Computed example of a mutant assay.
Amino acid sequence: MRISCFSLLKVFLSVLWLLSVAIRAEVTLPNTQTKDIKSNINQQVYRLHIQLPANYTDTNKHYPVVYLLDAQWDFPLLSAIYGQQYYDGFLPELILVGITWGGENADANKLRRRDFTPSDMDGNGGSGQAATFLKVIDQEIIPFIDEQFRSNDNRTLMGSSLGGLFTLYAMFNQPQRFNQYIPSSPAVDWDDGVLYTSAKQYLKNPPPHPIKMFMPVSELETLYTPVMQMADFLTQQNLPNLQWQKHVVLGAGHSGVKAEGDTRGLQYVFAKPAINLTQVQLKQYTGLYQAANQPDIKIVLDKSLSQLSAVLKGKATSLLAANPQQFFHRGEFFKVNFHSSETNKVNGLTLNTFASSVNYTKVN
Rank of each mutant, 00 (worst) to 15 (best):
F6M: 06
S7G: 06
L8T: 07
A22S: 08
R24I: 13
E26W: 09
Q33P: 03
I37T: 09
K38R: 11
Q44M: 13
V45P: 12
Y46C: 14
L48F: 11
Q51N: 09
Y56A: 11
Y63V: 12
V66Y: 05
Y67I: 12
L69I: 10
L69W: 11
Q72P: 05
L77F: 10
G83Y: 06
G83S: 13
G83F: 02
Q84S: 10
Q85H: 10
Q85W: 08
Y87N: 14
G98T: 04
G102T: 05
G103K: 08
A106F: 12
K110F: 11
R113F: 02
R114I: 10
S119V: 07
M121E: 08
S127P: 02
G128P: 06
I137Y: 00
I137M: 14
D138F: 09
I141Q: 02
P143N: 07
P143A: 05
P143L: 05
S151D: 08
D153I: 08
N154V: 15
R155I: 07
M158A: 14
M158Y: 00
G159A: 09
Y169F: 15
P186W: 06
V188G: 00
D189Y: 03
G193H: 05
V194F: 04
V194N: 06
Y196G: 00
Y196W: 07
A199F: 04
P207Y: 11
H209S: 13
M215N: 01
V217Q: 11
L220H: 00
Q229M: 02
D232N: 07
Q237R: 14
P240T: 02
L242Y: 03
Q245I: 06
K246F: 01
H247G: 01
V249I: 10
G253I: 01
G261F: 00
G261L: 08
R264L: 09
L266N: 03
P273D: 09
L277N: 05
V280E: 14
Y285L: 04
Q294N: 08
I299T: 02
L305R: 11
S306K: 13
A310C: 08
L319W: 06
L320K: 15
A322N: 12
V336F: 02
F338R: 05
H339S: 14
S341W: 02
E342S: 13
V346Q: 01
T350L: 12
T350S: 11
L351R: 06
T353Q: 13
Y360S: 00
T361H: 13
V363Y: 00
